[in-house]
Amino acid sequence: MGGLLTEAFLSSLFTGAIVAALPMLLAGLGEQMSEKAGVLNIGIEGMMLMGAYLGFFVAFKTESLWLGFLGGMAGGMLVAIIMAILCVRLGLNQIVIGIGLTLGVEGLTALLHHFQFSRTYPRLPAPERLNIPGLSDLPVIGPSLFGRHPIVYIALLAVAVMAILYRRTNLGMNLRAAGERPAALDVAGGNVLGIRIFAVLFTGAMAGLGGAYLANIGAGLFVPFMTGGAGFIGIVLAMLARGRPLWVLIGSLIFGAALSMTTALQVAGSNIPTDVIQMLPFAAVMLVLVLFGRRAKLPSALGAAYERGAR
């Protein structure tokens, strides 16, 4: 173990942490807005997977990663539109529809992938990087923190934007009202359904972007079922963050680090089966829920469809 803490090892650890954390960060930020507005978005796993599929497909066909990201956002929003119509507009059970959408997208993307690529898994070329002058030349943390694909910085910027949005804008207030006391928002002249539909679509876009990052940058290819619960972890992040975007970032980095630690250990030669490594993020989530579950706070009208004049 003496040679473990080399520069290359630490560098790959940081890099891995960020690559693993980013999809969860985007999903968590997206879910946070849905939950704030009172919609428990179990379909986020499906939105993410659709984003991964469409994001990869567009990037593969156009050979442009940026168009791929747009495709991913569109894919996530496509699923989100269905969710918005069924759960917000018609007020159907959010959990039943959420599970339905996740299962449906799992089946659909596997089917589409099968008929397009059969059993092959084509790869995208390695992504270009944006080196921040000066900082990216630092040893160890330089290339891993300041030499990433630009989308990483956009995601970090989104954390700040969301924090300001929730605290300082009318939209932020309306979102909170839609989740806590939808009837009060309605009486005050706000549009509860409109706000909630906006929140669900935003979740779709963010989850889709996260999925596209997972496929296009994280893996460089699309594999059916590839999100493997990352969207569900996003839900946990949003629950534990108690409405604060910064905590989603912190949480996702912790999970990302845990994931990349084991991957790095495996690369370094310890003999752990991949199943055990894949268990780690879920085990971490359970540990955090056991320790801090009581402190998680969710909006009071979460999960309840809003219907004007009902009780």
Binding site: I97, G104, L108
Partner: peptide, 13 residues
């Protein structure tokens, strides 16, 4: 999976 998902959604409807 697609069939089961359609079933869940149509059930809700």
């Amino acid at each position: 999976l697609v069939l089961v998902a359609s079933l869940l959604i149509c059930l809700g409807l």
